[in-house]
Amino acid sequence: MTTTQKQSPAILKNDAGSTSGKRRSRTRQLLPMALLLVGAVGFLFPFYYMIVGALQEKRDPTLAGALPWPSNMTLSNFTDINESIDLGRSLLNSGIFTGAVVLCTLFFGVLAGYALATLSFRGRGLLFAVVLLLQAVPFQLLMVPLYVLLVRGFGLGDSYLGMILPFAINSVAVLIFRQFFLQVPREMFDAARIDGAGEFRILRSIAVPLVKPAILTAALVTFIGPWNEFLWPFLITKEQSLQPLAVAVANFTQTGAAFHDNPFGAILAGSTVLAVPAVVLFIVFQRHFTATDASTGVKG
């Protein structure tokens, strides 16, 4: 919002010119706005269409079917998919998986971020390089070796632990915490040290309370990863009662849906249950999401 205010003098300057200048500045504003609104419709439409499709009693792929007609509305798609995949159980699995990943990420992230930002120790440079490198190497490459290790080596197939372990560290969270700890004046930590507080005491009584906003941001940024994750939990859970919702919906899409009256309705109902919580959470905490997420990405 501050940028908007900064901008207005420039626009005033333009407006103060001749009438033709005024008209030009008007189109200068209208053209990007039109572009943005057309774009926004394109971006929101599939999400909206998913919800409409989930509520349709009979599948209606026509143009008119994009509107929610009250005569064709039902909740039966949700009960329908619930008979094939236990939505409550899958949501619980997603919750356990996501919750554990977020907790581990915060725990390791606060410790490593604090150490990287405020303490000097041997190997600090190396550790920071590893944190950055981790961001660049995609998970898919580690997929087969991790599968060999965790499922074949340790027998962690079909277990929450096997699902959680590869996601328990997250370099984005470390970078967020490091950035926040760097902004805290050094004197605060030094004063506590002079008063005889140990590093754990400083961490608990000074550092963590100071970076509460960072904890919220890191939790939100981490949340969408495991909540939406498909590949890894799909690989290691064969038992349906342990599958997170994303895996259950995907399997239903591939195989289970064909026997239903309105297969697409049931699939879209499952998709709605999967997608809506993350989007609602994002809208509620929008401000915390955007700023830090993007700036960590740019500044590395």
């Binding site: 774009g39 926004a40 971006f43 929101l44 599939p46 999400f47 269409y49 998913m50 499709g53 969408i224 909540w227 939406n228 498909f230 994303a246 895996v247 919906v249 995907a250 899409t253 697409f264 699939i267 879209l268 499952g270 998709s271 709605t272 999967l274 997608a275 993350a278 989007v279 994002f282 999401f289 955007t290």
Partner: peptide, 15 residues
């Protein structure tokens, strides 16, 4: 603009 990025790919693929 951010909604498709937040929503699970599994869900968006079905739409």
């Amino acid at each position: 603009y951010y909604v498709p990025y937040i929503a699970a790919s599994v869900a968006m693929v079905t739409v």
